[in-house]
């Protein structure tokens, strides 16, 4: 196995606060990797660094062994990085179909309409293609963000809390989809609070606390790691 994404001693400082202090982690190709940790641990910040929205104060992001620190946000999509957002960032006044179509067109795929249609079918949104995206219920909106990210055919897909606001059936649908993506060879980095989802789909989990990785391992290892339990439940008094 080779690491598709390598994060090497990445630190991010906001004013006087260290949001990330020397994060090291690998994401292996064609796996689902979970990134968990208490609120304020720095998960979204790490996502922003990976897709170039925020420059790290120090450290290196490598994709396929190539440093991508200096590559602009809009060019990272062409390298195969796609993402969704914790606070939905849909094109709310465009239709569901156009949301995905814009992404396909920006990626410069052949026949963007076909690609868009294909992604909507995959996510089960094809029957709602003509609805204005802003009018979708949360669950469908989250799935639409995934569909849009997939339309640019990413190799690495960053999902930021895709299950929040989803009902049980939709969460189930999402977990099936994640496994499907993995079988298609897409690498997924998943930030999620729904632990049963994380534990059931992930191959590898990294736990972030107070800006650094405190544990990495399989779901089983993580669940029984005392340090992780302490991070979540607080130190024993």
């Amino acid at each position: 196995m080779t690491a598709l994404l390598e994060v090497r001693s990445v630190a991010v400082r906001f004013g006087g606060v260290m949001a990330l202090s020397g994060v090291d982690l690998d994401v292996q190709e064609a796996t689902i990797t979970g990134l968990i940790g208490p609120n304020g641990a720095g998960k979204t910040t790490l996502f922003n660094v990976i897709c170039g929205i925020r420059q790290p104060t120090s450290g290196v992001i490598m994709l396929d062994d190539i440093e991508i620190n200096r590559i602009a946000t809009q060019k990272r999509s062409a390298l195969g990085i796609g993402r969704t957002f914790q606070r939905l960032e849909l094109f709310t006044t465009l239709s569901v179909f156009d949301n995905v179509l814009v992404a396909a067109e920006l990626a410069g795929v052949n026949d963007p309409r076909a690609v868009a249609h294909e992604q909507l079918l995959l996510l089960g949104l094809a029957d709602r293609a003509d609805i204005i995206a802003g009018e979708l219920p949360t669950g469908s909106a989250r799935l639409l963000e995934v569909a849009r990210a997939l339309a640019s055919h990413p190799r690495l897909l960053l999902l930021d809390e895709p299950a929040s606001g989803l009902d049980d059936a939709e969460t189930q649908q999402l977990s099936v989809l994640l496994r499907q993506l993995k079988s298609l060879g897409i690498t997924v980095l998943l930030v999620e609070h729904d632990m049963s989802l994380i534990m059931s789909v992930c191959d590898q989990i990294h736990v972030l606390n107070l800006g650094s990785v405190i544990a990495s391992g399989t779901p089983d290892q993580i669940q029984h790691n005392p340090e992780v339990i302490d991070a979540y439940l607080g130190a024993v008094r």
Partner: peptide, 16 residues
């Protein structure tokens, strides 16, 4: 693309 930029420049940029 224009409308997408109005709705979410952030998502637009991450999509290229």
């Amino acid at each position: 693309r224009f409308v997408a930029m109005k709705d979410s420049p952030l998502a637009g940029a991450t999509l290229g």
